[in-house]
Design a protein around this nucleic acid. Structure first.
Lengths: 334, 334
DNA sequence: ATTCAAACTGAAATCGATTTCAATAAAGTT
DNA sequence: AACTTTATTGAAATCGATTTCAGTTTGAAT
């Protein structure tokens, strides 16, 4: 049922080699034969089998991306950046959505490891560094978004979690807040860890004693943020501001506050991270930290593609990009 | 540098065939040899080359999905539904984001056509029906979300655009509106077309004369909605309600109204379609039409997989699912 | 008219797995 | 003991393209 290159060849009275030459165009082919072949291709509706092609040529011109959740605009924006850069370099992108499940993440990693892609970009905060190092040493082309990995061949791009988290604390303190809740994401993510670190650093610098009871885990999603906030409110701890490690959790905080009749920002200031698309539409508009998501995706895709095509690796491998605090209406002075 | 099956074979002192048998487990292998092979695999860190495997076995256990925009929650939800169903059936999913560009859509279609996937799901409103029929006749397994395609082998799932659009008009008329704007999406999308049809049908039923100047195109995105609304406002046409063919455009309408000092819903009622995640967070919360996106993805994935594995095709191929109007605060009586 | 390079083409090897076929060994069956 | 049947393995063919190698034509240069 399938049309193969030999079918085209026999229809055009040439060898498969010639058809291949016409198809790929890096060799001499007489223009009259080229036309014969083209006509045969056309009339048979021939489509080359990429699986065979990739096997022989040992490349697929595709790169794979694994993200924890395509629904989160943070990742969706990154993907757009990757996609457009890759597209302009004639690469195609396949996206794997791990849906925040570690087993799926591993599963998809296995899929990409089986040579279906020429390179991969991991945006997954939970794949261990050692795993990435191992992959790279095995000869896979891997790039990482969201943190630094110690390996001379792995391009990385990330924002300084510690730095901007400290800046959030600085900002809240400048508004007069001293009792600041930190809402963390899931435990095995570097982002959670480093944002907590920045939070602590900020407190320390302002000589504010750390109150461990003000740190709660919200798993990076709305529901987690909602439940964490309810726990905090139930305990009746005194606090005037919440720094949520991402906007999704901040959304949950809004909901909990709404139910508890707590007004934002009059009674509680809320700051998120990601500049999620929703954050500017919600009322009050959420103060948040913006990361250059699209650019991060584009830069890392470019580096990866460069590296795949040149054996000398790039002078610059690790990119730390700046993020900015976007002050909106969810935060105010005491 | 790469470890191949022959390497494993020679390390374990067996033939490649035996290694393959161990790997795939559908043949007799003495348990002692199995262990030898396993040890060799382990110690060499062997990963089978899926490209070669797929070429030989003529299947990849992956299905490809093309969507116009992964950033839109309508598509993201559909993808989730597909992904989870596929995953439970041991299929992997690769997602192609056409970014609302028709050339990219074609490009990705070409990618999927080159036998890298066992089947494909198109959620693209702009791929022509004839193209889909042609693909299917050529032996590709294709399923479609969002409309019906006339071909006995193509599973389809969609909501009745005409029906719910008419219901939107019914609803607005019941609130007393008679001058209703219709904001259409881009012209080559069936959705635009059918939603307009429902709008017209609704007007007709209520004996409201059709005013062509009240129909504008907003290209299904926020910006388009904003600009279309501005054009309408500039023209100073009298209207009291807007039916936007999706929520994204409704967002643009909000922005234009905000700038023009027009209050929603007091001075203008707005209704969207999709029940986009943002729609419930925006103020006033948007009245919209909900489609069972996740379920649609799951159902079509299941049908496609069934069809790929059984030669007899399913009795039921076309699924029309119900959508519901979610009334929120953006619409009110005159 | 002869020579040499460039243009053009096909046969066969190759990519890395799976699978068929056939051969042998072990285990039951009468 | 002779004869099936079942278990176990390897050699070789195969999937559908690309690419090397070598051979033939053509065209230009001497």
């Amino acid at each position: 049922m399938d049309i193969k290159i030999v079918d085209v060849a026999s229809k055009a009275n040439v060898s498969p080699a010639t058809v291949s030459r016409v198809l790929n165009g890096h060799s001499y082919v007489k223009s009259s034969t080229r036309e014969k072949v083209m006509r045969a291709i056309e009339s048979l509706g021939y489509h080359p089998n990429a699986v065979a092609k990739n096997l022989r040529s040992q490349r697929s011109m595709t790169i794979g991306v694994i993200v924890p959740d395509i629904n989160a605009s943070y990742f969706a924006e990154i993907i757009k950046g990757i996609e457009n850069m890759a597209y302009s370099r004639k690469y195609r992108v396949i996206i794997c959505d791990a849906e925040n499940q570690q087993d799926k993440e591993m599963e998809y990693l296995g899929l990409l490891m089986s040579r279906t892609v020429d390179g991969m970009i991991l945006v997954t905060p939970s794949t261990a560094d050692e795993e990435i190092v191992r992959l790279t040493d095995k000869g896979y082309e891997v790039a990482v978004i969201g943190r630094a990995v110690e390996h001379p061949k792995v391009p990385c791009i990330f924002t300084d979690n510690v730095k901007f988290s400290k800046e959030v604390v600085d900002y809240l303190v400048s508004l007069g807040h001293r009792d600041i809740v930190f809402l963390s994401g899931y435990a095995n993510a570097v982002d959670s860890f480093e944002r907590l670190e920045g939070y602590l650093k900020g407190l320390k610098e302002h000589h504010i004693p750390f109150r461990p009871e003000l740190v709660e885990n919200g798993n990076f999603n709305e529901r987690g943020g909602y439940e964490a906030m309810k726990r905090l409110l139930d305990k009746g701890l005194g606090f005037t501001a919440v720094y949520a490690a991402n906007d999704e959790m901040a959304l949950g905080v809004y909901k909990a506050c709404d139910e508890a009749g707590l007004r934002i920002p009059e009674q509680l200031s809320v700051v998120g991270v990601d500049n999620n698309r929703i954050s500017k539409y919600i009322t009050p508009a959420l103060t948040t930290v913006n990361q250059p998501k699209y650019a991060m995706g584009a830069v890392i895709a470019e580096k990866l593609i460069d590296q795949m095509n040149a054996d000398e690796f790039s002078e610059k491998r690790v990119f730390k990009v700046d993020s900015e605090l976007i002050v909106r209406q969810s935060s105010g002075s005491l």
